[in-house]
Amino acid sequence: MANPSSASSSTAESGGPAVARAVVEVAKVSKTFGTGPGAVTALDGIDVSIGEGEFVSLIGPSGCGKSTLLRLIGDLTSPTSGIVTVNGKPARRARLDRDYGMVFQAPVLMDWRTIQANIELPLEIMGYDRDDRTKRSADLLRLVELEGFGGRHPWQLSGGMQQRVAIARALAFDPKLLLMDEPFGALDEMTRERMNLELMRIWNRTKTTVVFVTHSIPEAVFLSTRVVVMSARPGRISRVVDVDLPQPRTADTRESERYFELVTTVREALRRHESDAPIAADADRIRAEGLG
């Protein structure tokens, strides 16, 4: 259950066994909103484990609970039952220890601050001194290729640029874990593909563990080392697909055959569980392939 390298079609990233320490452990987690007959079960019996350095996408139809799962990991909400462990601690402790950075679908930048001040926001809150903050924000601006924009204000930048600032901000304090909730959802397709390449470039530099929620199958396959497919009503993990595409991912990756195969695999996994509960044979296979 809690094995980062999945049972079937194992990824051999650099040949050796993956002994990654689990950064995120979700054990038998359920989340119900409301009580009584109107209650909504957003998540039901979720088990997943994410190892260090992995890039895991959560994909599924609306209402499958993928954003809720992300927020449970970030302790922005609490599970109704089950335990969420981050970095070996309860999720709440991990949040108080500032173990992760978060990026939302909207950049959520502060208009009254310059771009540089926006990036420095978490550093201010966490008590870094001024020189440290200046140095870090300069490094991060360079990392997301926005050098020279530090003095501008958010409304002067395009949507894609604002999201890059949000990513820079999330990385400002070097978190080991990055939680991203459809960060490129509001962008057009071409910008999104470009941002995916950007993100891969950044990820290869920082080696952060990433949990990424998305609606887009190509995006999920392109970015991830593992894709977790979820189904809705109630939210459950229906399949986990290991993505064994070579690293680093480049524009050429999108044109490889294996990429198309994987995209098809994920699409079929999604379609199979679109409407009804899975038929018995499928249910067995899901369990055999391991939920996580």
Binding site: L76, R95, D97, R98, F104, I125
Partner: peptide
Amino acid sequence: DPRAFELMRSYAA
């Protein structure tokens, strides 16, 4: 924006 409040919560501000 409520997400800004969530952001601050994620920083344990």
